[in-house]
């Protein structure tokens, strides 16, 4: 299957939630190519999460078209494009009784690449180890994720996204539970990932420090519209 070099392409996209009389996102035009770090910022309710979920095809536009690696997100084939993506949702926190260990959670990121009865390769296990060292969570690998703090859980989910070696990484408020040191570390790791892998990273964050120093393009949103940075990234 052939994929476009354009990671995301949104053409006059309008998205609305069920029961709402006004669109959560209106008339959005955005193209993101490979090798860019895009920061989407704006106040609460600006439509940032809607935008990231529309890019991944988790939400479908009722007007306009959205493409992920050149595949229309309304098509069933978008699943193949998603295999090239990593995603960290805003609501990543798990309750204290969630018993999956951090190692298990990161391993689950490889699930879409596995055929029946297939388990992880040595190389993939080594990658999990390497990424967790990079994000300073190697001591937490065998701890149940539910027993960890918000910041530790957030690092674990980012590690899962990075371990997949995605061509596009979508991070929804990835700094929300991190302290200053944590934000700095994650920001530099993400920048390094973009440069070394030639991948694209799309970050949604209302708090722009310190990631704004690492971003190639900053897009500002308000009331479901892009107010600056619209167009080609």
């Amino acid at each position: 299957m052939r994929f476009s070099e354009e990671v995301v392409k949104l053409k006059d996209v309008w998205v609305a939630y069920s029961g709402s009389d006004r669109p959560a996102m209106r008339n959005i035009n955005l193209t993101v190519s490979l090798g860019k770090l895009l920061l989407i910022t704006g106040p609460n309710g600006a439509g940032k999460t809607t935008l990231i979920e529309t890019c991944l095809g988790l939400l479908k536009p009722y007007r306009g078209s959205a493409y992920l690696f050149g595949v229309d997100t309304r098509s069933w084939r978008v699943r193949y494009s998603r295999k090239m993506c990593g995603f960290v949702p805003q609501d990543f926190m798990k309750p204290p009784f969630e018993t999956y260990t951090v190692r298990h959670v990161i391993r689950l990121g490889f699930a879409p690449y596995k055929s029946i009865f297939e388990s992880l390769t040595e190389d993939e296990n080594r990658r999990i180890q390497r990424i967790s060292e990079l994000l300073e969570i190697e001591d937490l690998l065998d701890r149940p994720i539910g027993t960890l703090s918000g910041g530790q859980q957030q690092r674990a989910v980012i590690a899962r996204a990075l371990a997949r070696r995605p061509k596009a990484l979508f991070l929804d408020e990835p700094f929300s539970s991190l302290d200053r040191e944590g934000r700095k570390l994650i920001s530099s790791v993400i920048r390094e990932y973009v440069d070394s892998e030639g991948a694209s990273v799309i970050i949604v964050s209302h708090d722009v420090n310190p990631i704004i120093d690492y971003a190639d393009i900053v897009v500002k949103m308000e009331n479901g519209r892009i107010i600056s940075g619209e167009g080609y990234a």
Partner: peptide
Amino acid sequence: YKIQIDSMLYDVKMAEAEGI
């Protein structure tokens, strides 16, 4: 499909976004 089902049990939205 143990690993795919496990991924869905952990977080359906993440599993879908990752291409399961």
